[in-house]
Computed example of a mutant assay.
Amino acid sequence: MIFIVVKFKTKPEWAERWLEHVDAFTTATRAEQGNLWYEWSRSVDDPTEYVLVEGFRDEQAGADHVGSEHFATAMRHLPQALAATPKIISQNIDATGWSDMAELAVP
Rank of each mutant, 00 (worst) to 15 (best):
I2T: 07
F3R: 15
I4K: 12
K7H: 14
T10Q: 01
K11G: 05
K11Q: 12
W14I: 00
W14K: 08
A15W: 01
R17M: 05
R17I: 08
H21D: 08
D23Q: 12
F25A: 11
T26Q: 02
T29L: 03
Q33N: 06
G34R: 07
L36N: 09
E39H: 11
E39N: 12
R42K: 15
S43I: 08
S43P: 06
D45C: 03
D46M: 02
P47F: 02
Y50N: 04
Y50S: 05
L52G: 04
E54W: 03
R57I: 07
R57N: 06
R57E: 14
D58L: 11
D58S: 10
E59T: 09
H65I: 05
H65Y: 08
V66S: 12
G67Y: 05
G67H: 06
S68G: 11
S68H: 07
E69C: 01
H70Y: 08
F71H: 12
A72C: 04
A72V: 05
A72I: 00
A72D: 11
T73S: 08
R76Y: 03
L78C: 01
P79K: 05
P79I: 09
Q80H: 10
A81Q: 01
A81F: 09
L82D: 01
L82I: 07
A83F: 08
A83K: 07
A84M: 05
A84R: 06
T85W: 01
P86N: 03
K87T: 11
K87E: 13
I88W: 11
I88M: 13
I89W: 06
I89S: 14
S90G: 10
S90T: 12
Q91G: 10
Q91W: 04
N92E: 12
N92R: 13
N92A: 12
T96M: 07
D100P: 06
M101K: 06
A102C: 03
E103A: 14
E103N: 13
L104S: 10
A105N: 10
A105R: 11
V106H: 13
V106G: 06
V106Q: 15
